[in-house]
Amino acid sequence: MTHQVLLADDDPLLHRVVGFKVAQQQWQLISAYNGAEALEQARLKRPSVIIMDGMMPVMDGFAALRELRRDPITASIPVLMLSARNRDTDVVGALDQGANDYLTKPFSPAELVARVSRLIPGGAVA
């Protein structure tokens, strides 16, 4: 079974690059461009991992994360948060609210993939 990775970010170029990396791993990418879309997609498709940007229009990543954790359908999906800032308080805030991992922008795509594959339940990559 191929794993599905949901990317929620408002930057189209990021989707292209992450999409390329994800395809390399034989995973499938689901795209969402804001927090609300991410929630909807997460409930509908139940992806293996969610990569979520902290700052997005409509609903920011932190609010979306709270919602995800509140909903029993999505509560157990691992979430990796992305953020443009790297202040400690942000990291603490995100992890407090149930994020499983954290990466600050700009990031290395290889590192992203490594972290995501660690989050995939039982899905170590070859």
Binding site: T89, D90, A94, D96
Partner: peptide
Amino acid sequence: IYACHALPN
């Protein structure tokens, strides 16, 4: 005065 835990700014 109010602050947001997740958004320290």
